[in-house]
Simulated assay, not measured.
Amino acid sequence: MKCISVYTNDFEVFSDIYEKVLATPIAENEEKQVEGVTVNGSGDVPESYLDRMKAKPDVVVMKVKNKDITILQHGGVFEIFIPERENMVH
């Protein structure tokens, strides 16, 4: 799974830039600014990381209904997990 980290603890800010973050091409370990918020291409993450994080009591788990995207919020970061098939160029 590809992971994109968005460094804000404000859900409203995250929600406002979410679509722009997904539309922004970002390479692994590349850092960019989207509307003043730092975004980092965290690269590929194993499914086990996602499962461990979901089990923690201080992690909020969100699913995007129409896509197989999972978003975790913890501390001052949102992590967007995108399955590799969602990233394929057609």
Rank of each mutant, 00 (worst) to 15 (best):
Met1Phe: 10
Met1Trp: 05
Met1Asn: 03
Lys2Ser: 00
Lys2Leu: 13
Cys3Glu: 15
Cys3Asp: 11
Cys3Ser: 14
Ile4Phe: 06
Ile4Trp: 10
Ser5Pro: 05
Ser5Gln: 09
Ser5Arg: 10
Val6Glu: 04
Val6Ile: 07
Tyr7Thr: 10
Thr8Trp: 01
Thr8Cys: 03
Thr8Lys: 04
Asn9Cys: 13
Asp10Ser: 13
Phe11Asn: 06
Phe11Trp: 06
Val13Leu: 05
Val13Asn: 03
Val13Glu: 04
Phe14Glu: 02
Phe14Tyr: 06
Phe14Asn: 01
Phe14Asp: 00
Ser15Ala: 13
Ser15Leu: 14
Ser15Trp: 11
Ile17Met: 12
Tyr18Pro: 06
Glu19Arg: 07
Glu19Asp: 05
Lys20Leu: 08
Lys20Ser: 06
Lys20Arg: 07
Val21Thr: 05
Val21Cys: 05
Val21Glu: 00
Leu22Gly: 01
Leu22Val: 15
Ala23Leu: 04
Ala23Asp: 12
Thr24Glu: 02
Thr24Val: 14
Ile26Pro: 03
Ile26Cys: 01
Ala27Pro: 12
Ala27Gln: 15
Glu28Trp: 05
Glu28Tyr: 08
Glu30Gln: 14
Lys32Arg: 07
Lys32Thr: 08
Gln33Ala: 00
Val34Asp: 05
Val34Pro: 02
Val34Lys: 06
Val34Glu: 07
Glu35Leu: 01
Glu35Ala: 02
Glu35Phe: 09
Glu35Lys: 06
Glu35Gly: 08
Gly36Tyr: 06
Val37Cys: 07
Thr38Gln: 03
Val39Trp: 01
Val39Gly: 00
Asn40Val: 09
Asn40Gly: 09
Ser42Phe: 11
Gly43Val: 12
Gly43Met: 06
Gly43Thr: 09
Asp44Pro: 04
Val45Lys: 09
Pro46Met: 14
Pro46Gly: 07
Pro46Tyr: 13
Glu47Asp: 08
Ser48Leu: 10
Tyr49Ile: 02
Leu50Trp: 05
Arg52Asp: 12
Arg52Cys: 09
Arg52Met: 09
Met53Phe: 08
Met53Trp: 08
Lys54Ala: 11
Lys54Val: 02
Ala55Trp: 06
Ala55Gly: 07
Lys56Gly: 01
Lys56Asn: 15
Pro57Thr: 14
Pro57Phe: 11
Asp58Glu: 15
Val59Lys: 00
Val59Thr: 10
Val59Pro: 06
Val60Leu: 15
Val60His: 13
Val61Tyr: 07
Val61Leu: 04
Val61Trp: 11
Met62Trp: 11
Lys63Thr: 11
Val64Cys: 05
Val64Pro: 02
Val64Met: 13
Val64Ile: 15
Val64Phe: 12
Lys65Phe: 08
Asn66Met: 15
Lys67His: 13
Asp68Gly: 09
Ile69Asp: 05
Thr70His: 07
Leu72Gln: 08
Gln73Val: 04
Gln73His: 14
Gln73Trp: 03
His74Asn: 02
Gly75Phe: 12
Gly75Tyr: 06
Gly76Tyr: 08
Gly76Val: 03
Gly76Glu: 15
Val77Ile: 10
Phe78Asp: 00
Glu79Cys: 09
Glu79Thr: 04
Ile80Glu: 00
Ile80Tyr: 02
Phe81Val: 02
Ile82Ser: 01
Ile82Leu: 07
Glu84Leu: 10
Glu84Arg: 13
Glu84Val: 14
Arg85Phe: 15
Arg85Leu: 07
Arg85Asn: 15
Asn87Trp: 02
Asn87Ile: 12
Met88Gly: 12
His90Met: 12
